[in-house]
Amino acid sequence: MTDVAVDTSELRKTYVTSSGVTEAVAGLTLRVGRGELFGLLGPNGAGKTTTMGMLTTRIAPTSGTAAVAGADVVGDPIAVRRSIGVVPQYNNLDRQLTALENLEFSGRYAGLTAKAARRRALELLELFSMESRAGAKINEMSGGQAQRVMLARALMRRPDILFLDEPTSGLDPQTRVNLWDILRRMRADGQTIVLSTHYMEEAESLCDRIAIVDHGTLLACDTLDALKASTDLETVLTLTYETDADAEKIIAQVKELAGVTNAEASGENLRVFTLTPDGVLAALVRVGQDAGLALADVRIVRPSLETVFLNLTGREYRE
Protein backbone atom coordinates (compact mmCIF):
# COMPACT_ATOMS: atom_id res chain seq x y z
CA MET A 1 0.00 0.00 0.00
CA THR A 2 1.46 3.36 -1.04
CA ASP A 3 -0.04 5.14 1.96
CA VAL A 4 1.70 2.85 4.48
CA ALA A 5 5.19 3.82 5.63
CA VAL A 6 5.80 1.12 8.26
CA ASP A 7 3.98 -2.21 8.49
CA THR A 8 4.85 -4.87 11.06
CA SER A 9 3.22 -8.18 11.87
CA GLU A 10 3.98 -10.25 14.99
CA LEU A 11 7.45 -8.74 15.19
CA ARG A 12 9.54 -10.38 17.90
CA LYS A 13 13.03 -10.12 19.35
CA THR A 14 14.21 -12.70 21.87
CA TYR A 15 17.58 -12.69 23.60
CA VAL A 16 19.01 -15.87 25.07
CA THR A 17 21.62 -15.31 27.79
CA SER A 18 23.17 -17.28 30.59
CA SER A 19 20.47 -15.98 32.91
CA GLY A 20 17.61 -17.11 30.68
CA VAL A 21 15.40 -15.96 27.82
CA THR A 22 14.29 -12.34 27.50
CA GLU A 23 11.58 -11.37 25.05
CA ALA A 24 12.37 -7.71 24.35
CA VAL A 25 9.61 -7.36 21.75
CA ALA A 26 6.71 -9.79 21.88
CA GLY A 27 4.64 -9.96 18.70
CA LEU A 28 4.31 -6.28 17.77
CA THR A 29 1.84 -5.46 14.99
CA LEU A 30 1.79 -1.82 13.86
CA ARG A 31 0.97 0.24 10.80
CA VAL A 32 2.22 3.80 10.31
CA GLY A 33 0.75 5.96 7.57
CA ARG A 34 2.76 8.20 5.27
CA GLY A 35 2.93 11.77 6.52
CA GLU A 36 2.09 10.66 10.05
CA LEU A 37 3.94 11.59 13.22
CA PHE A 38 3.67 8.31 15.09
CA GLY A 39 4.70 7.85 18.71
CA LEU A 40 6.04 4.77 20.51
CA LEU A 41 5.40 5.52 24.19
CA GLY A 42 6.57 3.30 27.01
CA PRO A 43 8.54 3.17 30.26
CA ASN A 44 12.22 2.25 30.41
CA GLY A 45 12.71 -1.34 29.24
CA ALA A 46 9.43 -1.41 27.32
CA GLY A 47 11.07 -2.48 24.05
CA LYS A 48 10.99 0.87 22.25
CA THR A 49 14.67 1.02 21.33
CA THR A 50 14.70 -2.64 20.26
CA THR A 51 11.69 -1.99 18.03
CA MET A 52 13.40 1.04 16.49
CA GLY A 53 16.53 -1.05 15.99
CA MET A 54 14.62 -3.71 14.05
CA LEU A 55 12.80 -1.13 11.92
CA THR A 56 16.08 0.55 11.01
CA THR A 57 17.85 -2.80 10.28
CA ARG A 58 20.35 -2.50 13.16
CA ILE A 59 18.79 -5.44 15.02
CA ALA A 60 17.69 -8.66 13.34
CA PRO A 61 14.17 -9.81 14.31
CA THR A 62 13.77 -13.24 15.83
CA SER A 63 10.48 -13.74 13.99
CA GLY A 64 7.63 -11.84 12.40
CA THR A 65 7.81 -9.36 9.54
CA ALA A 66 8.43 -5.65 9.11
CA ALA A 67 8.29 -3.53 5.96
CA VAL A 68 9.63 0.02 5.92
CA ALA A 69 8.93 2.20 2.87
CA GLY A 70 7.74 -0.98 1.15
CA ALA A 71 11.01 -2.90 1.70
CA ASP A 72 11.45 -5.87 4.03
CA VAL A 73 13.89 -5.13 6.85
CA VAL A 74 15.39 -8.63 6.59
CA GLY A 75 15.01 -9.38 2.90
CA ASP A 76 16.11 -5.98 1.58
CA PRO A 77 17.86 -3.98 4.33
CA ILE A 78 19.78 -1.83 1.84
CA ALA A 79 16.54 -0.51 0.35
CA VAL A 80 15.29 0.26 3.85
CA ARG A 81 18.45 2.20 4.73
CA ARG A 82 18.18 4.24 1.54
CA SER A 83 14.68 5.32 2.56
CA ILE A 84 15.22 6.30 6.19
CA GLY A 85 16.96 8.81 8.41
CA VAL A 86 17.80 7.89 11.99
CA VAL A 87 18.49 9.98 15.09
CA PRO A 88 19.76 7.52 17.75
CA GLN A 89 19.24 7.87 21.46
CA TYR A 90 22.86 8.82 22.11
CA ASN A 91 25.14 11.29 20.34
CA ASN A 92 27.22 9.40 17.77
CA LEU A 93 28.51 12.38 15.80
CA ASP A 94 32.26 12.57 15.10
CA ARG A 95 33.33 14.89 17.90
CA GLN A 96 36.57 15.91 16.19
CA LEU A 97 34.77 17.21 13.11
CA THR A 98 32.79 20.39 12.73
CA ALA A 99 29.03 20.44 12.28
CA LEU A 100 29.44 21.17 8.58
CA GLU A 101 31.99 18.38 8.12
CA ASN A 102 29.74 15.85 9.87
CA LEU A 103 26.92 16.70 7.48
CA GLU A 104 29.12 16.75 4.40
CA PHE A 105 30.59 13.31 5.18
CA SER A 106 27.08 11.94 5.71
CA GLY A 107 26.00 13.35 2.37
CA ARG A 108 28.97 11.83 0.56
CA TYR A 109 28.21 8.42 2.13
CA ALA A 110 24.68 8.82 0.77
CA GLY A 111 26.02 9.28 -2.74
CA LEU A 112 25.90 13.07 -3.09
CA THR A 113 28.65 14.91 -4.93
CA ALA A 114 30.91 17.15 -2.86
CA LYS A 115 29.13 20.23 -4.18
CA ALA A 116 25.65 18.81 -3.54
CA ALA A 117 26.62 17.62 -0.06
CA ARG A 118 27.90 21.06 0.94
CA ARG A 119 24.84 22.78 -0.48
CA ARG A 120 22.48 20.43 1.37
CA ALA A 121 24.49 20.70 4.61
CA LEU A 122 24.39 24.52 4.55
CA GLU A 123 20.67 24.43 3.77
CA LEU A 124 19.99 22.21 6.81
CA LEU A 125 22.23 24.20 9.15
CA GLU A 126 20.21 27.28 8.22
CA LEU A 127 16.95 25.39 8.68
CA PHE A 128 17.94 24.48 12.25
CA SER A 129 19.42 27.92 13.03
CA MET A 130 22.91 26.42 13.27
CA GLU A 131 24.66 28.34 10.47
CA SER A 132 26.69 30.34 13.00
CA ARG A 133 28.00 27.05 14.45
CA ALA A 134 28.87 25.43 11.13
CA GLY A 135 32.61 25.61 11.87
CA ALA A 136 32.34 24.50 15.50
CA LYS A 137 33.41 21.02 16.52
CA ILE A 138 30.82 18.76 18.12
CA ASN A 139 32.71 18.61 21.42
CA GLU A 140 32.35 22.40 21.64
CA MET A 141 28.56 22.29 21.40
CA SER A 142 25.75 22.05 23.93
CA GLY A 143 23.54 18.96 23.99
CA GLY A 144 20.75 20.79 22.21
CA GLN A 145 23.04 22.04 19.44
CA ALA A 146 24.47 18.57 18.89
CA GLN A 147 20.93 17.16 18.75
CA ARG A 148 20.04 19.61 15.99
CA VAL A 149 23.12 18.53 14.03
CA MET A 150 22.08 14.89 14.44
CA LEU A 151 18.62 15.73 13.15
CA ALA A 152 20.14 17.61 10.20
CA ARG A 153 22.41 14.64 9.45
CA ALA A 154 19.41 12.31 9.37
CA LEU A 155 17.78 14.56 6.77
CA MET A 156 20.78 14.82 4.44
CA ARG A 157 19.42 12.18 2.04
CA ARG A 158 15.85 13.54 2.23
CA PRO A 159 14.51 10.31 3.77
CA ASP A 160 10.99 9.02 3.26
CA ILE A 161 10.79 8.12 6.95
CA LEU A 162 12.57 9.67 9.91
CA PHE A 163 13.15 7.56 13.05
CA LEU A 164 13.82 9.41 16.30
CA ASP A 165 14.80 7.36 19.36
CA GLU A 166 14.22 9.40 22.54
CA PRO A 167 15.40 12.57 20.73
CA THR A 168 14.88 15.00 23.63
CA SER A 169 16.12 12.81 26.49
CA GLY A 170 18.37 14.83 28.78
CA LEU A 171 17.70 18.18 27.09
CA ASP A 172 16.65 21.28 28.98
CA PRO A 173 12.99 22.35 28.67
CA GLN A 174 13.71 25.27 26.32
CA THR A 175 15.69 23.12 23.89
CA ARG A 176 13.04 20.39 24.05
CA VAL A 177 10.25 22.83 23.15
CA ASN A 178 12.31 24.27 20.26
CA LEU A 179 12.89 20.78 18.88
CA TRP A 180 9.16 20.11 19.13
CA ASP A 181 8.53 23.16 16.96
CA ILE A 182 10.98 21.83 14.37
CA LEU A 183 9.25 18.44 14.31
CA ARG A 184 5.83 20.08 13.93
CA ARG A 185 7.08 22.04 10.91
CA MET A 186 8.53 18.87 9.39
CA ARG A 187 5.24 17.06 9.97
CA ALA A 188 3.34 19.94 8.34
CA ASP A 189 5.62 19.59 5.31
CA GLY A 190 4.62 15.92 4.96
CA GLN A 191 7.58 14.21 6.61
CA THR A 192 6.78 10.78 8.07
CA ILE A 193 8.21 10.55 11.59
CA VAL A 194 8.37 7.62 14.01
CA LEU A 195 9.21 8.90 17.48
CA SER A 196 9.99 6.83 20.57
CA THR A 197 9.65 8.60 23.90
CA HIS A 198 8.83 8.16 27.56
CA TYR A 199 7.68 11.77 27.95
CA MET A 200 3.89 12.00 28.21
CA GLU A 201 3.83 15.67 27.26
CA GLU A 202 5.97 15.03 24.19
CA ALA A 203 3.72 12.29 22.85
CA GLU A 204 0.58 14.26 23.71
CA SER A 205 1.84 17.42 22.07
CA LEU A 206 3.30 15.98 18.87
CA CYS A 207 1.84 12.67 17.81
CA ASP A 208 -1.03 11.97 15.42
CA ARG A 209 -1.29 8.48 16.90
CA ILE A 210 0.36 6.86 19.89
CA ALA A 211 1.28 3.22 20.50
CA ILE A 212 1.71 2.41 24.19
CA VAL A 213 4.09 -0.50 24.73
CA ASP A 214 5.37 -2.26 27.83
CA HIS A 215 7.39 -5.45 28.37
CA GLY A 216 7.63 -5.74 24.57
CA THR A 217 3.86 -5.89 24.14
CA LEU A 218 1.52 -3.45 22.42
CA LEU A 219 -1.07 -2.34 24.98
CA ALA A 220 -2.96 0.23 22.92
CA CYS A 221 -2.62 2.19 19.68
CA ASP A 222 -4.82 5.09 18.57
CA THR A 223 -5.23 8.85 18.55
CA LEU A 224 -4.93 10.65 21.87
CA ASP A 225 -8.67 11.32 22.06
CA ALA A 226 -9.50 7.71 21.22
CA LEU A 227 -7.05 6.38 23.81
CA LYS A 228 -8.63 8.52 26.51
CA ALA A 229 -12.11 7.48 25.43
CA SER A 230 -11.26 3.76 25.28
CA THR A 231 -10.45 3.37 28.97
CA ASP A 232 -12.90 3.67 31.85
CA LEU A 233 -11.18 6.63 33.47
CA GLU A 234 -13.18 9.12 35.43
CA THR A 235 -13.43 12.86 34.96
CA VAL A 236 -13.34 14.82 38.23
CA LEU A 237 -15.71 17.78 38.58
CA THR A 238 -14.90 20.12 41.49
CA LEU A 239 -17.68 22.57 42.33
CA THR A 240 -16.86 25.50 44.62
CA TYR A 241 -19.64 27.43 46.33
CA GLU A 242 -19.64 31.14 47.19
CA THR A 243 -20.12 30.51 50.88
CA ASP A 244 -18.70 27.88 53.20
CA ALA A 245 -21.80 25.83 52.63
CA ASP A 246 -22.11 22.33 53.99
CA ALA A 247 -21.88 20.36 50.77
CA GLU A 248 -22.44 17.18 52.77
CA LYS A 249 -26.18 17.83 52.71
CA ILE A 250 -26.38 17.23 48.96
CA ILE A 251 -23.95 14.30 48.78
CA ALA A 252 -26.70 11.71 48.98
CA GLN A 253 -28.60 13.37 46.13
CA VAL A 254 -25.50 13.73 44.01
CA LYS A 255 -24.55 10.07 44.40
CA GLU A 256 -27.98 9.10 43.08
CA LEU A 257 -27.49 11.04 39.82
CA ALA A 258 -27.11 8.98 36.66
CA GLY A 259 -23.46 8.81 35.59
CA VAL A 260 -21.97 9.68 39.00
CA THR A 261 -19.60 7.00 40.30
CA ASN A 262 -18.62 8.75 43.52
CA ALA A 263 -18.81 12.11 45.33
CA GLU A 264 -17.08 13.67 48.31
CA ALA A 265 -17.36 17.00 50.11
CA SER A 266 -14.79 19.25 51.76
CA GLY A 267 -16.03 22.57 53.11
CA GLU A 268 -17.41 24.58 50.21
CA ASN A 269 -16.03 22.14 47.64
CA LEU A 270 -17.85 19.19 46.12
CA ARG A 271 -15.82 16.67 44.12
CA VAL A 272 -17.76 14.44 41.77
CA PHE A 273 -16.37 11.51 39.79
CA THR A 274 -18.02 10.54 36.52
CA LEU A 275 -17.50 8.84 33.18
CA THR A 276 -20.03 11.15 31.50
CA PRO A 277 -19.11 14.69 32.61
CA ASP A 278 -21.19 16.65 30.10
CA GLY A 279 -24.54 15.25 31.22
CA VAL A 280 -23.65 15.18 34.90
CA LEU A 281 -22.56 18.82 35.17
CA ALA A 282 -25.98 20.24 34.28
CA ALA A 283 -27.62 17.95 36.82
CA LEU A 284 -25.14 19.00 39.50
CA VAL A 285 -25.91 22.68 38.93
CA ARG A 286 -29.64 21.99 39.37
CA VAL A 287 -29.09 20.02 42.59
CA GLY A 288 -26.98 22.83 44.04
CA GLN A 289 -29.57 25.46 43.15
CA ASP A 290 -32.32 23.40 44.75
CA ALA A 291 -30.22 23.23 47.91
CA GLY A 292 -29.72 27.01 47.91
CA LEU A 293 -26.00 26.83 47.15
CA ALA A 294 -24.59 29.60 44.94
CA LEU A 295 -21.97 28.20 42.56
CA ALA A 296 -18.71 30.20 42.37
CA ASP A 297 -16.48 27.96 40.24
CA VAL A 298 -16.34 24.64 38.41
CA ARG A 299 -13.09 22.86 37.59
CA ILE A 300 -13.05 19.92 35.21
CA VAL A 301 -10.09 17.52 35.18
CA ARG A 302 -10.46 15.07 32.31
CA PRO A 303 -8.39 11.90 31.84
CA SER A 304 -4.95 12.68 30.39
CA LEU A 305 -2.48 10.56 28.46
CA GLU A 306 -0.64 10.08 31.75
CA THR A 307 -3.68 8.57 33.43
CA VAL A 308 -4.25 6.30 30.43
CA PHE A 309 -0.57 5.29 30.47
CA LEU A 310 -0.51 4.51 34.19
CA ASN A 311 -3.79 2.63 33.91
CA LEU A 312 -2.24 0.37 31.25
CA THR A 313 1.32 -0.01 32.54
CA GLY A 314 0.90 0.29 36.32
CA ARG A 315 2.62 2.57 38.84
CA GLU A 316 5.54 0.45 40.02
CA TYR A 317 9.06 1.83 39.78
CA ARG A 318 11.13 0.85 36.72
CA GLU A 319 14.88 0.33 36.56
Rank of each mutant, 00 (worst) to 15 (best):
T238P: 06
M150R: 03
V213N: 01
L227R: 07
G35I: 11
L237Q: 02
A294M: 10
D72G: 12
T29K: 11
M130I: 01
P77W: 10
V149W: 06
D189H: 11
A136H: 08
D181L: 11
T98E: 13
E131D: 14
L124E: 01
A114W: 15
G143A: 07
T274H: 10
S129M: 06
A71Q: 06
D246G: 03
L124I: 02
L155P: 03
E166H: 09
R118Y: 14
M130H: 05
A226K: 12
T56L: 05
L293S: 01
L183S: 04
H215W: 10
L55S: 00
E131Q: 14
D7H: 11
L155R: 02
L224G: 04
A136T: 02
A79T: 03
K228N: 06
P159A: 08
I193L: 10
E248Y: 15
A114K: 15
Q89W: 10
P61H: 08
R185F: 09
L312P: 07
F163P: 00
S266N: 12
S106D: 07
E316W: 15
Q147W: 14
G20E: 07
N311C: 08
L151C: 00
S18H: 11
E264Q: 12
L284G: 00
L40K: 04
V177H: 13
S129Y: 12
N262F: 15
G33C: 13
L125E: 08
S132W: 13
M156H: 09
D246C: 06
M156Q: 05
R185A: 09
G292M: 09
T17C: 03
V6Q: 06
V21I: 10
M130K: 05
V287L: 11
A116E: 13
G42C: 07
S18E: 12
P303W: 15
L218H: 04
I212W: 11
A66N: 03
R12T: 05
N139K: 02
L55W: 05
V280Y: 11
E234P: 02
Q89K: 03
M52I: 08
G135E: 04
I78N: 12
E248C: 08
K115G: 04
K48R: 02
R271P: 03
Q191M: 14
F163S: 00
Y199E: 06
E101H: 14
M54R: 02
L100R: 11
M186C: 03
V213P: 03
A79L: 10
L227Q: 06
R58G: 00
R148N: 04
T276N: 13
Y15E: 01
R158M: 07
Q174N: 05
T22W: 15
A203M: 10
T175F: 14
V73N: 07
D76E: 13
T22C: 10
V25H: 03
R315N: 11
D189L: 09
A263F: 10
G20A: 09
D181W: 13
V32G: 09
T168E: 06
E201V: 03
I84N: 04
S129V: 00
L239A: 01
L284D: 01
T192F: 14
E248L: 11
